[in-house]
Computed example of a mutant assay.
Amino acid sequence: MRSLLLILSNPRYFGPSWIFASVNIWFGTWAIYIPSVKEKLGIDKADLGIALFCLSLGVFTIFPMASKLINKIGVGKASWIGVMCVSVAAMLPLMAPNYYLLMGGLYLFGAGTGFTDIAINTLVTEIEKEDKVNFMSAAHGFFSLGGILVGLGSFLIPVIGSPVLHMGITVVLVFFINLYFSKHYINVVAAPAEKEPFSLRLFKPLLLLGIIGFICYACEGAIVDWSALYLQEVVLAPEMLIGAGFLAFSVTMTLGRFLGDGISSRIGPIKLVGLGALIAAFGYVLILTQHTTWSIIGFAFNGLGFSVIVPELFRIGGNVKGVDSSQGVAFIAGSGYLGFLLGPVVLGFIAESTSLTYSFSVLLGCILTVLAITFFLRRKRK
């Protein structure tokens, strides 16, 4: 919790952390109105799926060029530009009068979100280097906090009565908070890395980190999409507890991220990734008991374990010797997003051909692979 107090007591750290929360507030507000947009435009599920793919396409389109843009503009200014772009882009999908403009709006929303994601992770990495502090994990905790704020804001849906008005109010409030704090980070620039010629020695650590990111994002995506169905069809949990797995996962995810920085400063980021993988693996063991209480507790352990892994990956990736921090962050972000998109899909195919229980067994095997990779990274570092 020390890093949380650090963020709340210093605007230099609160500003970047609030951008994390902002991204999830904007994205979550759009997400709660997806059914309304589908009904307004008269599109079916297949059309909606293609439109949502445009969102992902926007994210991936910006990744290859993001690090160069961030280095050219300056990471502080790039983060602020990202905030301004996403503030505008968040309005476009809800204002779209037809299906094609919906796809275009989602593409721009995805591109803006992807650019901002890389910029703010790089920004936090650079501030940590300059100030010799750790707050990456707590900053990611603010992302989770943004989701909680969206959930609370959803109670205003009947009162506001308009998706565009709801998003407009949200954008204005969130934007002006960002505007107030932007002066505390806008002049931060990335320290130039000592460039080295491309070699497998440089690429291997990034590749391994990318594999970990792919697996962990895939596991998170699988839990988001499949936890309720697992509790319903496999565990045969009561109807009122079907959403309890995801709730437990979300709560411990938020809590773990506010605790992660202090632990990381004591044992180091690679050990913390290994510890997170071990905790998540124990969670999967509990889930596979197919007992309602133990399975829900298992999802809670999943959230606690995964909460510390992703922030540490960005911290490690932003400090790889011979690689610009923005390039390291972009590589891990790209690998992670790919896993988040493909993981639930692959899990669905496995579940269809075998069973959902077998799918979660595969996830257990994947997180044990992460644990094995951390042992290799620790040995190489020594």
Rank of each mutant, 00 (worst) to 15 (best):
S144Q: 08
G74N: 02
T357P: 04
F155C: 01
F60V: 13
S355T: 14
Y217T: 09
F27K: 00
L364M: 11
V362I: 15
W26N: 08
G161H: 05
F109R: 04
C366Y: 07
N24I: 14
G283A: 05
C219A: 09
V224I: 11
G76E: 00
F376N: 04
L241V: 04
L338N: 01
M136V: 01
L55R: 00
N134G: 07
S295C: 05
V308K: 01
M253T: 02
F27V: 13
N178V: 01
L156D: 09
F14W: 02
F360M: 11
L231W: 05
L255K: 01
L179I: 14
S335Y: 04
C54W: 14
F282S: 15
I73C: 05
L123H: 03
A228N: 14
S56T: 15
F175G: 12
V133L: 02
G318Q: 08
A330H: 04
I332R: 05
G276W: 11
Y33P: 00
A96I: 04
Y180H: 15
I350L: 13
A46E: 15
R378Q: 11
I70Y: 10
L313Q: 00
L363Q: 02
K195L: 10
R201M: 13
L259R: 07
N24E: 12
L241A: 12
S295H: 09
V362A: 08
L304A: 15
G318M: 04
L8W: 12
K204I: 12
L363D: 01
M136Y: 01
G343I: 09
V59M: 13
L55I: 09
N24F: 07
T354V: 14
F203V: 06
L368R: 03
A89P: 04
A90T: 11
C219Q: 07
E196P: 00
G58N: 08
W30P: 00
G274E: 05
I242Y: 13
F115D: 08
N98E: 10
I148K: 03
F301M: 03
F135E: 07
I263H: 01
F340N: 09
L52K: 13
D117H: 03
V224Q: 05
A280Y: 13
L92M: 11
Y337W: 11
K271F: 15
F198I: 09
T122K: 08
E312K: 13
D261Q: 06
P238W: 01
L200Y: 14
N187Y: 05
I120Y: 11
T289E: 12
D47E: 15
I19V: 15
G262I: 10
